[in-house]
Amino acid sequence: MSALGELRALKGKPPGRQRKQNRAAFLFLAPWFLGLALITLGPMAASFALSFTRYNLLSPPRFTGIDNFARMFEDERLMKSLAVTFQYVFISVPLQLALALLLAVVLDRGLRGLSFYRSAFYLPSLLGASVAIAMLWRQIFGVDGLVNAVLGWFGIEGQGWISSPDTALGTLMVLNVWTFGSPMVIFLAGLRQIPAMYYEAAAVDGANRRQQFWRITMPMLTPIIFFNLILQIIGAFQSFTQAYIVSGGSGGPVDSTLFYTLYLYQRGFANLDMGYASAMAWLLLVIIAAFTAVNFWASRFWVFYDDQD
């Protein structure tokens, strides 16, 4: 067969074995595509359509144009929920990542029982968003809770940390910081990937541990920091269970724990204003997308990769 004939044969149909493999691949991927269409894309399309309607779940939706989006600018509780959520994200996420990085650096020094510590520290990430932990948190920071009991040992009179608008949101921030396990494990994996020869060369040049950390560890970890930052910001914006359980679903006291997702739930399922809730959901999507886009744009100034000059 000539070279031209071989080329035409390669461009033709794939061999029978390859066709069978392709069919098998599509067969195994079919449940995922079906779930994507029915569980993700379908509800998203329905939510987008409902955001332009007035719908109370009891009667057919009625088209109202952009009225739901216009109402947002006059909704004081929505603005309050945004302020609470932004405060929660901007304070708790950096503290969580800082604690996760600190413990990852400590564990990277080769402690005995590393697997145990890694599992123990990762456990809060699995349980932190659960109803049980939120209820436990409510008891810990209650008037007769563990925090006030410990303060009583030192002669300090405690307070109702959950019932005070000045400290209620802070308790939820502490809960989010406590779930540092997931980013810590990712940081630890990143630290293990930094070549030891960099530290050996720096030690020969007389660099101490602090200088090695800021000149080698941090620049090499910036892609991991960026990855964790994106994930934790998205997760923090979507936080719901903690505020719902701790505040009893009200967002109190005085709306101090009124997360955006909690207010969305109240409008959609408590007030049966599903059209407005759908519009709120799309606003949240835009906010998360905007923060993600800004982080990707800013990453060019502080994230360094091995293949960069």
Rank of each mutant, 00 (worst) to 15 (best):
G5T: 15
L7R: 11
R8N: 14
A9R: 15
A9K: 15
L10C: 10
K11R: 15
G12M: 02
P14G: 00
P15T: 11
Q18Y: 13
Q18A: 15
R19M: 09
K20V: 14
Q21W: 11
Q21H: 12
N22H: 14
A25P: 11
A25V: 15
F28D: 08
F28V: 14
L29H: 01
L29Q: 06
A30K: 02
F33E: 04
F33P: 03
L34V: 13
L34K: 08
L36E: 08
L38Q: 10
I39F: 15
G42Y: 07
F48E: 05
A49W: 13
L50E: 02
T53V: 00
T53L: 01
R54Y: 06
Y55R: 04
L58G: 10
L58H: 15
L58C: 04
S59N: 15
P60K: 14
R62I: 11
R62K: 15
F63S: 04
F69G: 03
E76K: 08
E76V: 10
R77K: 12
L78H: 00
S81T: 10
L82G: 09
A83Q: 14
Q87C: 11
Q87T: 09
Y88A: 01
Y88S: 06
V89T: 01
S92Q: 05
L95P: 01
Q96H: 03
A100H: 00
L102V: 02
L103G: 06
V105A: 11
V106E: 05
V106G: 09
L107G: 09
L107E: 01
L107T: 06
D108E: 06
G113M: 02
G113E: 06
L114E: 14
Y117N: 03
R118T: 11
S119H: 00
F121A: 05
F121P: 07
L123Q: 07
L123H: 01
L126G: 10
L127C: 04
G128T: 04
S130T: 08
A132H: 09
I133D: 06
I133K: 10
A134M: 01
A134H: 01
W137K: 05
W137P: 06
G142H: 01
G142C: 00
V143F: 13
V143H: 06
